[in-house]
Design a protein around this nucleic acid. Structure first.
Length: 554
RNA sequence: GCGCCCAUAGCUCAGCUGGAUAGAGCGUUGGACUACGAAUCCAAAGGCCAGAGGUUCGAAUCCUCUUGGGCGCACCA
């Protein structure tokens, strides 16, 4: 729809230039928007106002010139007017809008998915929780955002790979092993002090119990140094299995799980360092090896290899991102907890040090979630070991409600997650509002079927009967879906879909209340059922991207 | 001290990358079920977009400063 008007405007500008009405040294970018107020037409452009200065004419004069040069060959325009300081408002012919219903009917669940990605490969890394404890609610938000974003990017034609980076090297795992070892010994009656900075959660005891059952007492008198590996391996695998099953219950699935330890084992870290050296972005000072990240705007250079010869966390991250790039991904997207934002310049420096543009890496920050219960924040202390896990929340409120709520806010703003509201299957819960719209339509079909009325095929529909204000509003909302999808995808903002859905569902509920779909007139009933079918398709499509089910009944 | 993010209705938040009269949900008040699902709908009240300057035809949106919150500033991961 926008494209059609853009073409008409481009042509009008060219004509005005040929006739000498406008100078047009630089070809202006034509932007169209959907006005908020209905009496401002269906689409509006600010073109005349942006041209005012270069053309040295008043916006309204320019607008007149543009309109004079418009040729509407296909007859899509109902009216064109100049308004306010120089807006040009377009009103489209009704049948033009109604045409979108046939588009949706023909394209089905592919409707509204423009192929802007053209198969370009994107690596989307998210969650990437340390395998040292259960997923918490913040991970859940990252998972919901990442998964929806992956769906969204796929919808617009990107070749998306969803990856979970497993931090299975270094001190955290060692810590887990030590904690596990202590619990194991304690379970066997061996008084053993619990490590100061160990993991205190009860899950550690459960894992220790599992290990005990599998391996028996054979480590009872073995010093930790001699059995760290089996404890680390067992702990890692047990935690990953837990994480996997939690994500599974949440409907989040990854294409790949990338192990940090595998980078070390393959010598990738060493190779990366060599390459950085060759590129002159690594140097030695004070007995350590540094990344010259200041060359790319970081505050200071960063240590990669410590004085004692061991690697910093950055070292494996360097290797990991190099590895990602070497797999042929042009675009990398990382979803991080907002508390890691100080790390961004460093990693962007890494990307550039390897010769890639800074914006090859996008980092989305996800703010932490505050769980609310009875109007009070639920205390979350990982230190104490008892915190509300993602699993608890999903079991409590259900996957649909949790995912939807995670996606109702932009990811970098704080989120209060009210457990009572999320659990309540009532009007206060936004996810039910949208799902109810879908179920209502499904219910309409059942009703129609019971009366022997079928939804007509596209060639048997008279869409011109859909001429009420409510019907027009719905049709226009459906026509907007493709842009919402495209813009949400390109901005990496899946939350826009929840707002779109609220609006569409609202229009549907309003229409449903005001007008009857199944009427005495067969033609009208048919056209309305046809309209409902397309609404249902779009709701299902958008919910699908968010990873929320579209129920037939509730 | 330096850097990043945030500040919009009583509460929780949108605001389409600079457009026309700033929106939604909850909450409050008052209405709508003998017809397809009332998990719904309609209406009302509620705002100095934290404050002050600046950029321009035009600012919640961009720039600077101030105030007030969150988070980072490791040879930790």
């Amino acid at each position: 729809m926008k494209q059609t008007i853009t073409d008409i405007l481009t042509e009008a500008l060219a004509r005005a230039k040929d006739k000498g009405d406008l100078i047009l040294d630089v070809h202006p970018v034509i932007t169209l928007e959907t006005p908020k107020a209905k009496n401002h037409g269906d689409l509006a452009t600010t073109l005349a106002m942006t041209l005012a200065k270069p053309e040295a004419k008043s916006p309204r004069v320019i607008a007149e010139i543009i309109i004079r040069n418009i040729q509407d060959r296909d007859g899509v325009l109902e009216a064109t007017e100049i308004a306010g300081p120089g807006f040009i408002n377009f009103v489209l012919k009704q049948d033009r809008w109604q045409q979108t219903l046939f588009d949706i009917d023909a394209e089905g669940n592919q409707y509204g998915f423009p192929n802007v990605g053209r198969g370009e490969k994107i690596l989307l890394e998210y969650v990437s929780a340390n395998p040292t404890g259960p997923l918490h609610v913040g991970h859940g938000r990252g998972a919901a955002v990442g998964d929806a974003l992956a769906n969204l990017l796929r919808a617009v034609g990107y070749d998306v790979q969803r990856e979970f980076y497993v931090n299975d090297a270094g001190r955290q795992i060692r810590n887990l092993a030590r904690s596990l070892y202590a619990r194991y010994q304690q379970a066997l009656g061996n008084a053993m002090p619990f490590p100061e900075d160990g993991y205190h959660g009860s899950y550690v005891e459960e894992i220790a119990e599992g290990l005990l059952q599998r391996e028996g007492k054979k480590f009872l008198n073995t010093p930790f140094e001699d059995c760290e590996a089996p404890f680390a391996d067992y702990g890692r695998e047990a935690m990953l299995a837990d994480i996997r099953s939690d994500l599974d219950a949440f409907g989040v699935h990854f294409d790949s799980w990338f192990s940090e330890a595998s980078l070390l084992a393959a010598g990738a870290v060493q190779q990366s360092i060599e390459e950085l050296r060759a590129r002159k972005y690594a140097y030695e000072k004070d007995g350590a090896l540094w990344l010259r990240s200041t060359a790319f705007g970081d505050d200071k250079d960063r240590v990669v290899v410590k004085q004692d010869g061991s690697y910093t966390y950055l070292a494996t991250d360097i290797a990991y991102h190099r590895q990602k790039l070497s797999r042929g991904f042009k675009t990398l997207v990382n979803i991080w907890g907002a508390d890691h934002h100080g790390y961004i310049p460093r990693v962007q420096a890494v990307i550039q040090a390897f010769g890639h543009p800074r914006d090859a890496l996008h980092i989305l920050l996800v703010q932490l979630v505050t769980l609310m219960r009875h109007g009070q924040p639920v205390p979350m202390s990982k230190r104490a070991g008892d915190f509300v896990t993602l699993r608890d929340v999903v079991q409590d409120v259900g996957s649909d409600a949790a995912r939807y709520i995670f996606l109702t806010r932009r990811s970098d703003s704080h989120l209060d997650f009210d457990l009572d509201v999320a659990k309540e299957q009532s009007r206060e819960n936004p996810v039910y509002y949208v799902q109810y719209a879908h179920a209502r339509i499904a219910s309409l079909y059942r009703e129609a079927e019971s009366r022997g009325i079928a939804v007509p095929a596209s060639d048997g529909v008279d869409v011109s009967l859909l001429d009420s204000e409510e019907e027009q509003d719905i049709i226009k909302a459906l026509a907007q879906y493709p842009e919402v999808i495209e813009e949400a995808a390109l901005a990496y903002e899946p939350h826009r879909l929840t707002y779109y859905l609220q609006n569409l569902a609202g229009l549907l509920h309003n229409y449903y209340f005001k007008q009857r779909v199944i009427t005495d007139e067969a033609g009208r009933t048919g056209s309305r059922l046809f309209l409902m079918k397309q609404v249902k398709t779009v709701i299902q499509s958008a919910l699908g991207i968010l990873g929320v089910t579209a129920p037939e009944r509730m």
